[in-house]
């Protein structure tokens, strides 16, 4: 039982970071219909800048702002390449361009930070003990940050005129344009929100994990799987997907073997993608005899 609780807490902390990547995917996909495969790289860039500033004793606030700025620069770069050059609603081209952009961001991080990875400046973290379960107290902070970021995003989308304009663009860009919604600006805003979320995620990830130039690949894959669970449309479901994947990975690592983590992510993706169609088919098959009888 103690081990289970430990795995659960580990999974929630990592899952929280996956959730933030997933939310970034969903926001961009809804507004500009692009699967932005570089989303994990925004977070990797933010993590590195956050840790670099923390190690330069710039202070938590400056480091967090730096993380958001780094993610913003990466996001604007991808927006320029994928949306402007790729063209709105040319999904395949835009997807491939985000893939290229992901490699370019990793190349840029390699050039800026080298192969050296970074972590928080040396100091003992606050260890929280629940009986025989011990964990880094910052994990709780990470989970709280994800919940607050998610709540903020949902409030923004549902309670502010700008949020409504974004949702209108997401639902029907042509109608939104006819209603004088600046559709292109909404696309840019979607990337900016994805960057903000990645910046927050980068700071959270940096606080508990290791920043390296190529961490984005793992994060992008896991975040994408989680976003797909949310149907690529709902940030709340995407966040639940992130937490679920994090917990599943931690349980598999704990009870089976950690090298099954990556295959698990893909199994998760396949199951999530195939489950609705399979369920529909099963329902149809069950319904068919009744139709024949009628």
């Amino acid at each position: 039982m103690e081990a289970f609780v430990q795995y659960l807490i580990n999974g929630l902390a990592v899952g929280g970071v996956f959730a933030l990547v997933a939310i970034g995917y969903v926001v961009v996909f809804r507004v500009v219909r692009i699967v932005n495969i570089a989303q994990g790289d925004f977070l990797a860039a933010a993590t590195l800048v956050f840790l670099w500033l923390m190690n330069a004793h710039a202070g938590l606030v400056v480091a967090a702002l730096g993380a958001v700025a780094a993610a913003l620069v990466a996001a604007l770069f991808v927006e320029r390449i994928a949306v402007t050059a790729g063209g709105w609603y040319d999904e395949l081209r835009a997807f491939l361009l985000t893939l290229a952009a992901s490699q370019l961001i990793q190349g840029a991080l390699l050039l800026c930070f080298g192969t050296q990875y970074l972590t928080m400046p040396s100091s003992a973290p606050p260890i929280v003990s629940l009986g025989n379960v011990h964990f880094n107290g910052i994990y709780l902070l990470v989970i709280a940050i994800v919940v607050v970021a998610l709540a903020g995003l949902v409030l923004f989308l549902e309670r502010t005129p700008l949020g409504w304009a974004m949702l209108a663009t997401a639902d029907d860009p042509l109608a939104a344009r006819l209603c004088a919604v600046p559709v292109r600006t909404m696309g840019l805003l979607a990337f900016a929100i994805a960057a903000l979320v990645a910046g927050i995620g980068g700071a959270a990830y940096g606080a508990v994990a290791i920043g390296s130039w190529n961490a984005g690949t793992t994060l992008s894959t896991a975040g994408f799987a989680a976003a797909v669970l949310g149907g690529m449309k709902d940030p709340i479901r995407a966040a639940i997907g992130g937490f679920t994947l994090g917990i599943l990975q931690a349980l598999v690592s704990g009870y089976a073997a950690s090298y099954l983590q990556d295959p698990l992510t893909f199994v998760f993706l396949v199951v999530v993608l195939l489950a609705p169609a399979t369920l529909r088919a099963l329902r149809r098959r069950r319904a068919r005899p009744a139709t024949v009888a009628a």
Binding site: N10, G11, V17, V208, T218, A250, S258
Partner: peptide, 9 residues
Amino acid sequence: DAMGASVDS
């Protein structure tokens, strides 16, 4: 996975 997010478990 050396590139994984955590080996806590």
